[in-house]
Amino acid sequence: MAQMQKTLEVRNLRKSFGGVMAVDSVSLEVAQGEMLALIGPNGAGKSTCFNMVGGQFPPTEGEILLNGGDGTAVPIAGIGSRRIWQLGVGRTFQITATFTSMSVRQNVQMALLSRRHMIWKFWPRADDLLSDEALALLEQVGLQAQAERAAAVLAYGDLKRLELAIALAGAPKLLLMDEPTAGMASGERTALMALVRRLVSTTGISVLFTEHDMDVVFEVSDRILVLDRGRLIATGTGAEIKANEQVRAIYLGTGRTSGGH
């Protein structure tokens, strides 16, 4: 089996929806311990990339390779999101998805139960299992005060935090975050992404994320990829991206530093 150093390697990824190319020949790499930002205007194809890497749907064409831990490259294109989770990929969704009939704590417990292979227990009360561990994760994302509230009544920013805790409960090596701060106030955004940055430095996980707030992107990311109408138009460090004419024209040129809907 092929060898690889990177955590994730994507080669010539394509996705067409009924003939419309949502993602066209995208290649990218995420190194271990790297925070890579994928930016671009709405409709650029960012979420589509996330959904192919996360296994929500298969790519039309292209390769997605994941580091199997010992340096072996495991092809994951089209193998389904549960298998991809087993290989150490966690994610959050652009449209938050949480378990609405459960409390905040139970949401995280659920993810922990899954990671510990305890799904097929039919008798013990789930509420009593792994509760402390769940609370510890909630503390990390700053949700411990809301642990007993119903997930269904959380404010949008808190839902995003909860999703992060759920994703972290799977102990991922690679974290995919699709607009993790949408709906948050600007101070909150910086705080949340700073938290993720700390996680990356302490645990060495890799993060691929999208974000509309450019200040946040420049502050926390190691490298930035710019996507426009399905194609990668630039890659580089924050400074390089700021200086790139093409990016300025189609993206920053409009004067937007934040945006998105």
Binding site: A97, T98, A167
Partner: peptide, 19 residues
């Protein structure tokens, strides 16, 4: 039980559950 929770999880948000 954990199974019952998992069942509700698949109903509440099946993409999330699978992920």
């Amino acid at each position: 039980s954990p199974f019952g929770f998992a069942l509700r999880a698949t109903r509440d948000a099946s993409a999330r559950a699978a992920a």
